[in-house]
């Protein structure tokens, strides 16, 4: 009982938010290793973490090059998505006409599974980098556009009234209220969008590419090199977490006032 109480108390400290996830991750790998060793599961079904680690070391060159390719396509698609998403979001948010015309189109387009578009992209642009960037872009821009529009829509009318009663121009109202008000909405969507861009890039690589971690995993599994496939998955997990963590931290630092 006493230990439970102390554990409960510790879980509320800041250190706990680092210690507990680390322990859980280590525990997962230890249990995994033991299960594979004890049950003698062959590596082509489920490789042990030690086998995955060996494969990672042996293939580190290939893993590095391909993960850089994936990172590049993800970020390129993501940057395009920010630009398009913010512009579209402001159009929908500020113009009733743009909202009526574009919103149904956007929703309709967003319901298409993007993986279905990859073969078309490969047909138009060839296999490789361009389809991956496009898929990353298409998956990522929608949440950004929706959040920007939502942010503009939720500006308190009284806040605008305060500005109008001072004789502020439309631009000043945007500069002093619309823009800062939308920032937390943008950052909330960036966390989602970067993960989606990553998913998009990898999907495209598995379908139509000769580069990238997605391609590496497909090749590894067709060669029955399952440890290498898992090594690729590990790299993906680490990259995805790092990208998300970067934007979560940036949000906390830049939008400190939104609690």
């Amino acid at each position: 009982m006493d230990t439970l109480d102390r554990l409960e108390k510790f879980s509320r400290t800041k250190a706990a938010s680092i210690v507990f996830p680390t322990v859980a991750t280590v525990l997962l790998f230890v249990v995994w290793e033991i299960v594979v060793q004890v049950l003698k599961i062959p590596a082509y079904n489920l490789p042990a973490p030690s086998a995955i680690w060996q494969s990672t070391i042996a293939q580190s060159q290939a893993l590095w090059e391909n993960s850089m390719q994936t990172l590049l396509t993800t970020l390129a698609g993501f940057v395009l998505a920010i630009a398009a998403g913010v512009i579209l979001g402001f159009m929908i948010g500020y113009s009733r006409l743009a909202y009526i015309v574009l919103y149904p189109l956007l929703v309709g387009f967003n319901t298409i599974p993007k993986v279905a578009l990859v073969p078309l992209f490969a047909l138009w642009f060839g296999v490789g980098t361009v389809p991956a960037i496009l898929t990353a872009f298409l998956l990522a821009f929608f949440p950004i556009a929706v959040n920007v529009a939502l942010g503009l829509d939720t500006v308190e009318p009284e806040m605008k009234d305060v500005m109008r009663s001072l004789g502020a121009s439309q631009f000043e109202i945007f500069q002093k209220i619309g823009f800062p008000h939308v920032m937390p909405y943008i950052f909330a969507s960036l966390k989602v969008a970067i993960s989606l861009a990553f998913v998009g890039a990898v999907i495209s690589e598995t379908v139509a590419s000769n580069k990238g971690i997605g391609y590496l995993i497909v090749t590894a599994s067709s060669n029955f090199d399952v440890p290498l496939g898992f090594a690729g998955l590990m790299v993906l997990a680490i990259m995805g977490t790092a990208l998300y963590g970067f934007f979560a931290a940036a949000e906390k630092y830049l939008i400190y006032w939104a609690r």
Partner: peptide
């Protein structure tokens, strides 16, 4: 107004 409408970023 009844609602102070201060800007949370300032």
């Amino acid at each position: 107004f009844q609602n102070p409408v201060l800007m949370p970023w300032r």
